[in-house]
C-alpha cells in the first residue's frame, strides 16, 4: 500500500476513533450524536430501508449528470466557437451559481412537481457549471502554434475540434466532471428536502422529525459513498481515456 494511502486511512481512523471515544466517555445519546460504530451498524442492518431510497437518489444524480453533460458540452463549444455567445451567456452562467439552490428548489418543485424531474434538474444545475467552465477553459487553452498548424493544413472548425481542441481540453473536462459529480448529490438531496416521496433526502427529513439521528447519519454515509464512488469512477474513466499522460 502506498504511503499516501496509509496516511489517509490513518487520519480517517484517528478522527473516527476520537469521535467514538468522545461519544462514549461523555455518554452522548444516539438521538443527539450517534457513534461511528452505531452509524455503520444502522447503515448495514437497515439497508433494506435505506437502499430503495438510495437507488432513487442515485438515479436522480445520474440523470442530472447526463442532463448537465448534454447542456455543458454543446454550450462550451458554442461559447468557444463564438466569443459573442460567451459574452451573452456568461452572466446567466454566473447567476445560475450565485443564486442559492435552496431559493430555486421550491420553484422547481412547483413547476415540475414532486416527482423525479425537479430533483434531476436541481442536480443538473449544480453539476453543469464546473463542467462548462472547465471545458471552455480547456478549449481556450490550446496552444496557438497547434492552431496555426491546423489552419495551414486547411482544417475546418469541426475537424480541428475533433482532432485538436477536444483531446486538448479532455483533462480540463474530467477535472470539471470530478468536481461536478462530487457535489451532484447536493442538488438531488435539496430537491428531496423541499418536496418528495422517496429518496435519501426525503428519508433524512422523515428520520430527523422522529429524532432518528442514527438513520440521518446512515443516509449521509450512503450519500458520501455514492459521491465517492462517482468520483472514483470518473477518475478511472479519465485514466482509460487520457492514456497519453
Amino acid at each position: 500500500m502506498k504511503r499516501a494511502t496509509l496516511i489517509t486511512l490513518l487520519a480517517i481512523f484517528l478522527v473516527l476513533a476520537a469521535w467514538e471515544t468522545i461519544c462514549r466517555v461523555l455518554s452522548i445519546p444516539d438521538f443527539i450524536l450517534p457513534t461511528p460504530l452505531r452509524i455503520v451498524t444502522v447503515a448495514v442492518v437497515q439497508a433494506d430501508l435505506l437502499l430503495p431510497h438510495a437507488a432513487v437518489t442515485a438515479v436522480e444524480v445520474l440523470a442530472g449528470i447526463l442532463m448537465s453533460l448534454m447542456v455543458a458540452v454543446p454550450l462550451s463549444i458554442a461559447m468557444f466557437a463564438h466569443p459573442a455567445a460567451e459574452n451573452a451567456i456568461a452572466p446567466f452562467l454566473v447567476a445560475s451559481q450565485a443564486v442559492p439552490v435552496f431559493a430555486v428548489a421550491p420553484l422547481l418543485v412547483i413547476w415540475l412537481g414532486y416527482g423525479m424531474a425537479s430533483k434531476v434538474l436541481m442536480a443538473a444545475v449544480i453539476i453543469f457549471f464546473p463542467i462548462t467552465v472547465n471545458l471552455l477553459e480547456g478549449l481556450k487553452g490550446c496552444d496557438q502554434e497547434f492552431r496555426v498548424l491546423f489552419r495551414l493544413m486547411g482544417a475546418g472548425f469541426w475537424q480541428t475540434l475533433r482532432l485538436l481542441y477536444w483531446p486538448w481540453a479532455l483533462p480540463h473536462f474530467f477535472a470539471g466532471l470530478k468536481v461536478g459529480v462530487s457535489v451532484a448529490t447536493i442538488g438531488a438531496v435539496i430537491g428531496e428536502w423541499v418536496g418528495a416521496q422517496q429518496g435519501l433526502g426525503y428519508l433524512m427529513i422523515q428520520a430527523n422529525a422522529r429524532l432518528k439521528v442514527d438513520v440521518v447519519f446512515a443516509a449521509i454515509l450512503w450519500l458520501s459513498a455514492m459521491g465517492l464512488s462517482l468520483w472514483v469512477f470518473v477518475g478511472f474513466l479519465e485514466k482509460r481515456v487520457i492514456t497519453w499522460k
Partner: peptide, 30 residues
C-alpha cells in the same frame, strides 16, 4: 495559406496520436 507546407522549431506532434496518426494528419484533413 494552405499552399505551402510548414515545419516549426517545435515538433508539434499531438501526444494523443501515434506517430503514424500524426504523420497522416494532413492527408486525413484533406
Amino acid at each position: 495559406g494552405t499552399t505551402s507546407a510548414y515545419m516549426h522549431q517545435k515538433d508539434l506532434l499531438l501526444p494523443w496520436f501515434t506517430l503514424m496518426d500524426n504523420a497522416l494528419l494532413p492527408s486525413k484533413i484533406a
